[in-house]
Design a protein around this nucleic acid. Structure first.
Lengths: 227, 227
DNA sequence: CGTCGTATTAAGTATAGACATATTTTTGGA
DNA sequence: TCCAAAAATATGTCTATACTTAATACGACG
């Protein structure tokens, strides 16, 4: 009795080895099930999994074919900064820099889809790894969601507070490179104009704008993953 | 009759709304199936899908609980550069800069797991969008895999050639920021030291080292995705 | 010669029942 | 009291069968 995972692995091996070349239509589920010695449901589960990951294109009546030009997908895990530091076996420290209500720039209003230029809570903080600057957190928060009274970021970072209070959210994410400005130079202790890796993230919870944050990492930071 | 996708959506709604709070153990499959009005197999398919994406933690006998601190996952699509340019409704152009056998630096040998410092094929090229520099491709190739005779990169970029010839591969991927050096300044026509977004990718096919490439994008480039 | 409806096909899915497997809990001894 | 063996339990999976749905092929008809 073969598990669908086994069947999946065998099928993937055929794709990788070229036994099923890109663009080629492969036999129908029912026939493959017989060949692999399993039920059609099992075959279906395996092929569906491969299709989900972009290895196969499947169409009703049209049959299944190996993707000719698969869109490579890279999956990055975006952990909480403290965990990220601790995973590197470093000691995490955190320093709140500013926390006040301010009128945000146009770009932030647009990202959060706030029509009027209402005042938002701006929180900036520095994360350290083994005492050295690791990452600057520059955040705009919807004050209705996280009022200064309820959410105090002196000890627990906004980054972590949010993960606990708005666990499952949607939003956008962007990676880019930016030069160090005066504020970043001061916090990260890097050269002016240094190339820094940055992440912009905007978060909504059931349509309500929650926060827009820019995380800027110290020089040399790399975001890595396997394919 | 509910599809597992429908059931999945309903369950996800409960998680997002907080009806099933983070850390909480939810009822067993059999009971949920009854509540949702479907068979256990259907419930299982739905919950398994949610567990795959990190929303749930499931253990035999232990039951299913909502992930307390989910690791956020971001999925990026890594397209062929030409497609990437064309998706932005720009015209893609390509210019081969160099193509010769050279001894690679230590770092490249290490990434490709080449013991001896054998000569590799180095290919550098420039990709343009609407005539403007878009991305510099700096690649080291295993000459045994892509000999100069068979693989000519004057017209078709190595990027594209490889997608066609080694479709399903494994490897590593890293995103980072780097300053523009002299070579990049010349090709991308940017300021010296400008902050540039870069991708390192090393590719293996069934254990054989294929290629290691650095893609450096023109200033202002952002790698975006939805969560 | 086109085009509209129908038959056919292959994937998508649902279900009940059975068994497998990993843990936890309980129980029975030393 | 403590530990090992056994029972209980929730998820993991397979199977056979039946039905649904989307897309294609094809033939009748204007």
């Amino acid at each position: 009795m073969k598990s669908w995972q086994t069947v999946r692995a065998e099928a993937l091996a055929r794709i990788r080895s070229g036994a099923w070349p890109p663009g080629e239509t492969i036999p129908r589920e029912a026939d493959l099930a017989e060949e692999f010695g399993c039920a059609r449901a099992t075959m279906n589960r395996a092929m569906q999994s491969l299709a989900d990951e972009g290895y196969l294109d499947r169409r009703r009546k049209g049959g299944t074919r190996v993707a000719a030009m698969p869109v490579r997908k890279a999956v990055f895990e975006i952990p909480v900064i403290r965990q990220q530091v601790e995973q590197r076996r470093s000691t995490h420290a955190y320093r709140l820099v500013t926390d006040r209500l301010t009128t945000p720039p146009e770009a932030v209003c647009a990202a959060l889809k706030f029509g009027s230029r209402m005042q938002l809570r701006r929180v900036t903080a520095l994360h350290l790894a083994d005492g050295k600057p690791f990452c600057v957190e520059d955040r705009w928060l919807n004050p209705a969601f996280a009022p200064p009274g309820e959410a105090d970021f002196a000890e627990v970072s906004a980054n972590e507070w949010l993960v606990r209070h708005v666990t499952y959210s949607t939003g956008t994410l962007a990676f880019y490179a930016r030069p160090a400005n005066a504020a970043l130079v001061r916090l990260l202790k890097c050269a002016h104009g240094a190339s820094l890796f940055a992440i912009d993230r905007t978060t909504f919870d059931a349509g309500t704008p929650i926060t827009s944050v820019t995380l800027t990492y110290a020089p040399g930071y790399r975001m890595e993953t396997l394919m």
